[in-house]
Write a protein that binds this DNA or RNA. Structure first.
Length: 251
DNA sequence: CGAGTTTGACCCGCGC
DNA sequence: GCGCGGGTCAAACTCG
């Protein structure tokens, strides 16, 4: 995108108050156009973010809940069910949602409406822990997965996380896990306290610690991913093209 | 050798 | 009643 402000200001031979007022007026108009473009971008960012958070396919929370109810598993009905949208981390074993617990995989299925396999895990952090977890990738963005937790841990969060496999050594996982993540199936999983534990949204504002280099890198990665996801959106491109076209027409 | 993963088979509930 | 699909089991396999 080409901005003419600098060229206007630096153009030789422009003298006098009228000329400066003319420049100021043009700059104001230019500023208005840029504001409008920012507004368009903001509205599309909100739309896109809502789509990602509400979800398509299994990321449509209502559809997912109705599906869970339709399955009608008694065990599921009687236990606490939590749906968590999380940014997955690629490891040698595939997509991993790092939540501080140790999980043992006991099955994998390819479901009808999603080509990415759904993995089934049991908590192995504590003896006889009844908690199960299902993890399935998103159709449109493999870096995002939906994890479904069933049940309540009969033990605390493992303290020696450095020895556990699939454990995020950088995550300080407190005992408010259940309060923060174990929401009922009918409640929204998009609570602010969730996003402080898991990197659930694309918003850079969810970062809780920007004081370290690592956090800054994560922030930059988030912004890059955000930009990448925006540029993939055809409606976003159309909006930008429309705004640019209007700017050209008005000049 | 033990712990974890993979994967095909089986079970069970639901919709038609 | 039957077929479909999700969830679980368990034997085989892998890895440290």
């Amino acid at each position: 995108m080409e901005f003419k402000s600098s060229s206007i200001l630096s153009s030789p031979g422009v003298v006098g108050v009228e000329a400066l007022e003319g420049q100021l007026d043009r700059l104001r108009k230019e500023n208005e156009k840029l504001k409008m473009m920012i507004e368009v971008m903001r509205s599309h960012c909100s739309t896109l973010e809502a789509q990602i958070l509400r979800g398509k396919n299994y990321f449509n929370h209502d559809q997912y809940c109705s599906k869970v109810k339709r399955i009608g598993n008694a065990a599921v009905r009687n236990t606490k069910v939590t749906h968590v949208f999380a940014r997955a981390q690629f490891e040698k074993n595939g997509l991993v949602v790092k939540d501080g617990f140790q999980w043992r995989k006991y099955g994998q299925k390819v479901t009808k409406d999603n080509p990415y396999p759904r993995a089934y895990y049991k908590c192995s952090s504590g003896p006889g822990c009844p908690v199960k977890k299902k993890v399935q990738g998103c159709l449109e963005d493999r870096s995002i997965v939906m994890a479904t937790y069933e049940g309540v841990h009969n033990h605390g969060v493992p303290t020696n996380t450095s020895t556990a496999t699939g454990v995020d050594k950088t995550t300080s996982y407190s005992t408010d896990y259940d309060q923060g993540l174990s929401t009922n199936v009918n409640t929204s999983p998009f609570k602010p306290n969730i996003s402080t534990h898991l990197d659930l949204t694309l918003s850079a504002s969810t970062s809780t610690d920007i004081s370290t280099d690592k956090a800054n890198n994560n922030n930059n990665n988030n912004i890059e991913e955000y930009i990448a996801s925006l540029t993939k959106d055809p409606s976003f491109k159309a909006a930008i093209a429309s705004a640019v076209a209007r700017t050209i027409v008005r000049q």
